[in-house]
Amino acid sequence: MKISNPIIKASQEKMSKSEDALQRELGHIRAGRANASLLSRINVEYYGVETPLNQLAQISVPEARVLMVTPYDKTALKEVERAILMSDLGISPANDGTAIRLVIPQLTEERRKELAKQVRAKAEEGKIAVRNVRRDMMDQLKKSEKDGDINEDELHNLEEQAQKVTDESIKNVDTLADEKEKEILEG
């Protein structure tokens, strides 16, 4: 949809950022499949400095439920293993001397349902963020009309555009959540 109003354009960008944030959040939810984003929040103490794991090691997915972490510097292997153990992943690393393998366990049906609820909760947070952007956008549009920048007819048309942008963003949030939920429940 072609948007010309700067208020709606800026709000649309904010809504898009909310969708991106939701996608990142959903990437951290373990779905029973190996996914490199599971390790994105892990930092390793490397020569006294907290360093993100993905900067210290190559993370690959050799099999559907296996993550392989291969440090660029083999001397950092023990520190990488320690950081993974200390994380909230709940997966025990297997160190073979050159790389670390993480076998993602199958999820129980109960755990799948629990994770699906988490996905729904995150999606609801995403929708709330989108609605807050919409509310601010509508306030700005009404202020523009009050200030005489736009007339009543323009305000009505812009409010319709704003609602379309909001509906589209909420639909995107639902799609992201549905895909993640399907991934979790199918496992």
Rank of each mutant, 00 (worst) to 15 (best):
E79R: 09
A76D: 03
A83W: 00
D20T: 14
E110T: 15
M86C: 06
R65S: 15
L22I: 10
T75W: 02
K113L: 10
I91K: 05
G126W: 11
S37R: 07
L22D: 09
P93R: 04
K78Y: 06
K74G: 09
M15C: 13
L77A: 00
R65F: 05
Q118I: 01
E50S: 15
G90N: 09
G48V: 06
R112Y: 04
E25H: 11
T70K: 15
T75F: 05
Q118K: 10
E19S: 15
G32V: 06
Q12W: 09
N54V: 12
A123G: 12
Y72C: 07
I100L: 11
V103M: 05
Y47A: 13
V80Q: 06
K14V: 00
Q55S: 10
G97F: 11
N43A: 13
S18Q: 07
Q12K: 14
M138S: 15
E45H: 08
K122W: 00
L26N: 06
R120M: 09
N43C: 08
D20E: 12
K74F: 03
A76V: 10
R112S: 07
A83I: 03
E125I: 11
E110Y: 04
E125K: 14
L22A: 11
G27I: 07
R135F: 05
L85F: 08
L56D: 12
E81L: 01
E110L: 05
K74T: 07
L67I: 07
H28W: 02
S87Q: 03
A31M: 04
V130A: 15
I128V: 15
R101K: 11
P93K: 04
A129G: 11
K113R: 13
